[in-house]
């Protein structure tokens, strides 16, 4: 069972993180201040750390920097009340792996944790991705479903690659916008849904088993049909 350390000074937020991650089958430890959190993170051998940016005693940014200086590579999801782009860049540059702004939805947080936990499941050397009979060639950028070659636009290709690299995992709209387009604001309307809809039309033709699944309230996942 993967072990997660949550460093968060607000008890209720921490409880929700713990409850949400536990329901995903993770074992969660909680530290309510920076000093204790840093000690646990160094000693503990965790698979992932969720880290509040602003903490009493030792600041979140200091914890990341310290861990990375000690060559501890545990994935870190930074959770911050500061949403400024500069702040995000600072957090990621210090060694954070992902950055989430408060107030956040707990399913958004859980989806990011899951992705971070399994981020190395697809080796960098792999040149093909496959979900059921959907194949993606990472070198020639060609996609096919069964015998049918798919004609994808560059964005659609990026979107499909992202989903397939994390097949079986829930990917939220915000994660898609950040990863595929590289922007970090809220595009507001149902823009991502529209782009997913386009992609869906191309890969899930009528009569075929749909591969892209909508996860209500949260986002999308691509997986083998059950």
């Amino acid at each position: 069972m993967p072990r997660v350390l949550t460093i968060e000074d607000d008890a209720v937020t921490a409880q929700e993180i713990v409850a949400e991650l536990s329901s995903h089958g993770l074992e969660v430890d909680w530290a309510d201040n920076g000093r204790e959190g840093l000690a646990k993170a160094i000693a503990g051998g965790y698979d992932l750390i969720t880290l509040d940016r602003m903490l009493p005693e030792v600041d979140g940014l200091t914890i990341v920097t310290t861990l990375r200086n000690l060559k501890i590579a545990t994935p870190i999801l930074m959770i911050s009340a500061l949403s400024d782009v500069d702040e995000r860049v600072r957090g990621l540059r210090a060694g954070g792996d992902d950055y989430l702004t408060k107030p956040f939805a707990s399913d958004e947080m859980a989806a990011r944790v899951e992705v971070l936990l399994r981020r190395n499941s697809v080796p960098m050397t792999q040149t093909r991705l496959q979900v059921a009979d959907l194949e993606l060639d990472l070198i020639s950028h060609e996609a096919r479903r069964g015998e049918q070659a798919l004609n994808l636009l560059p964005t659609e290709y990026k979107l499909l690659e992202y989903l397939m690299r994390h097949s079986g995992q829930v990917i939220t709209r915000m994660m898609i916008f950040e990863e595929v387009w590289g922007y970090h604001f809220d595009p507001g309307t149902n823009l991502i849904d529209v782009h997913i809809g386009r992609l869906r039309k191309k890969i899930d033709s009528p009569g075929q088993n749909p591969l892209i699944r909508t996860v209500r309230g949260s986002g999308y996942a691509i997986a083998e049909p059950v």
Partner: peptide, 16 residues
Amino acid sequence: RTPLTRLRAQLYRIRQ
């Protein structure tokens, strides 16, 4: 910010 995060989380939990 914090109560809003909590509210969303609790609603989501009940929904699950």
